[in-house]
Each structure stands twice: as C-alpha cells, then as structure tokens.
Amino acid sequence: MSAYLVACRFALLAMAKNRLAAVLLIVFIPVWITVAKTLTTPETFPFRLRATGTWLRAGGDEITMISGSLNAVSLLVGFLMFSAARRTRAFDRRLTAAGYPRTALLGAKLTTLAVASLLVSSYATAWMLLFWTPLQPFLLGLAVLAVCLVYGAMGMCLALFLRGEVEGLVTIIMTSIIDLAPQNPVASTTADKALVELLPSYGSLQTSLAAGFTRNATVSPLLHSAAWLTALTATALAAFALRTRSHPPLRADDRRRVARRGARPRRRGEG
C-alpha cells in the first residue's frame, strides 16, 4: 500500500508540473466553449438521437458547444496522459528493474487517469453551465467524464508505441477530429449512420445530447465508452507489463558459468 501511495504522489506531481496542459486547461477550454456558443447560429435544428431513435430539436449553438467541449477535453486529457506516460517510461523501467512492484505503478497510472479526467470534465461542464442550462446537468457531466477517460487511456496506450510528443499530439488531434466531426448533427449528414457507433466518443456525445435536451436518463450509450475504455486500458497496461517485466533469476549452473567467465583472466587482444 505504501508503494502505491508513493507512486501516486510522484505521478500526480509529475502531471501537475505539465505547464502546457495547465495553460490549455485554463485557457483553451473556456475559449473553445465561448466561441462555440457565441459564434454559432442559434437556429433550431431537428436531429435524430440514434441511441433512442427519437427526434429532437435544439439550437445549433448548443449542439456545437457540446461537440466542441467533448473535442476540447478529449484533446487535453489525451495529451496530458500521453505526456505523463512518455516522460516516466524510462524511469518506470528502472524502478521495476530495481524491484519496485509493478502493481503499484499500474495503480498509480490508473489513479492519475481518474484524477485528470475528473478534474478536466468538471471544469468543462462548469463552463458549459455558465452559458446553458441542460435538462440533466449530472448526466452531462458523466458523459464528459466518460470521453475524458477514453482519451486518457488512449494517450497512455499511444505513449508506449510513439517516441515523441509531436507524434502523439498529432495522432490524438487527428483521431479526435475523425471521431467527432462525423457525429455533429449540425455539421454532418453522417451523424445518423450506423458506423458512428464504432467511434470512441459515440457514447459520450449521444448521452450529452440526451442530457441536454431530454428528461430521459439515457445511459446505455455509455456502454460503448466502457468498451473502448476497457480495451484501451487493457492494451496500455499489458504493454507496460511486458516492457517492464523482470528477468527470471539465473539458475545455479548459469551463475557458475557467469562467475567462471568473469573470473577468467583476459587474454592479450581482448577488450
């Protein structure tokens, strides 16, 4: 337990020292939500909520604000977790090689993901509530939290396979655009297609729209988010465990062979 607490403390401190992420959190999210709300047409649009099959009507500014908020938090949490996992990658290997329990490090990473997602989703939801009063504020916050968890796990996963922060940031940006753009009922005619159910933010966007414009507690779409979160988290943790696995101890005959090899005097010409 003490190893887990120590790992959590250092992981959270490392995340808090990410100044770029802090600036993006404080500035980018409010600016994005303000622009989406004030510069988009408030004209009412009819759209079909695919999760329930019901037709709804809502202002274009409110729909765009929801989609833009999910886009902003997914980028921020994805980049934050990617950066944190990438910076501690080599240090984690040294710790596990020295005998530090991998379970403590894995638990610390999951705790960091949960804390970062809760912080960012609460902040973004609070800013949306300044401009708009959804019918189900709590459900809206839950939907935003879900997309934060999914993209945070995606960032952890990408950090194990991509070398630099530029590659990770570009990958997260492009994934978020490809993910959310086809689902916006205002900007896209493909929002009602069956393929959108395969996208990472489908559950969050459908739940957010239901929370904003209906009084029905539509939480079934979040099962899609749970599936994405489980798959990405399992991949990230499995890759971490494989890359930090400890080597098995040498057998007695291997130890004797290594000892003889180490005690053998060097011959002339050997390095």
Score class of each variant (00 low, 15 high):
58 A>Y: 01
126 A>M: 06
165 E>H: 05
69 S>V: 03
247 H>K: 10
140 L>R: 07
214 T>P: 06
54 T>S: 12
217 A>H: 10
58 A>C: 02
144 V>L: 13
158 L>A: 08
211 A>I: 12
132 W>Y: 15
210 A>N: 06
254 D>M: 11
214 T>Y: 02
88 T>R: 10
111 T>V: 15
79 F>K: 06
60 G>P: 03
28 F>K: 02
127 W>N: 06
106 L>Y: 00
207 T>Q: 00
213 F>M: 04
5 L>K: 09
42 P>W: 09
27 V>Y: 00
155 G>Q: 03
22 A>S: 10
168 G>R: 02
66 I>W: 08
126 A>T: 06
212 G>E: 03
242 L>C: 05
269 G>L: 06
191 A>S: 14
232 L>S: 09
97 A>K: 04
204 S>A: 15
101 P>S: 04
194 A>T: 14
170 V>Y: 05
87 R>H: 07
216 N>R: 12
217 A>W: 14
267 R>S: 10
133 T>I: 07
141 G>S: 06
118 L>G: 15
258 V>N: 07
197 E>C: 08
92 D>V: 00
166 V>F: 08
109 K>R: 15
126 A>N: 00
201 S>W: 01
162 L>N: 10
263 A>P: 07
151 Y>L: 05
132 W>R: 12
257 R>V: 05
265 P>I: 09
5 L>E: 12
6 V>W: 12
69 S>D: 03
23 V>N: 02
97 A>D: 10
266 R>P: 04
159 A>N: 04
242 L>N: 09
219 V>M: 12
166 V>R: 11
237 L>M: 14
45 F>C: 02
6 V>S: 09
45 F>H: 13
267 R>P: 06
125 T>E: 09
192 D>A: 15
152 G>D: 12
223 L>P: 01
222 L>D: 07
190 T>A: 01
8 C>D: 09
152 G>L: 09
200 P>W: 02
157 C>T: 05
149 L>H: 00
261 R>E: 14
51 A>S: 15
199 L>M: 12
32 W>R: 11
115 V>M: 03
186 V>S: 02
31 V>F: 11
199 L>T: 00
235 T>F: 13
269 G>V: 07
137 P>K: 09
219 V>C: 05
230 T>L: 15
256 R>Q: 15
94 R>Y: 08
157 C>G: 00
242 L>D: 10
123 Y>R: 06
101 P>M: 06
117 S>W: 02
201 S>D: 02
121 S>D: 06
250 L>S: 13
259 A>I: 04
130 L>M: 12
73 V>A: 03
215 R>V: 08
85 A>K: 01
22 A>P: 01
143 A>F: 01
127 W>Y: 11
69 S>Q: 08
131 F>E: 13
149 L>I: 07
84 A>C: 03
168 G>P: 04
252 A>W: 08
36 A>M: 14
118 L>K: 03
61 D>T: 03
202 Y>C: 07
241 A>C: 05
132 W>S: 09
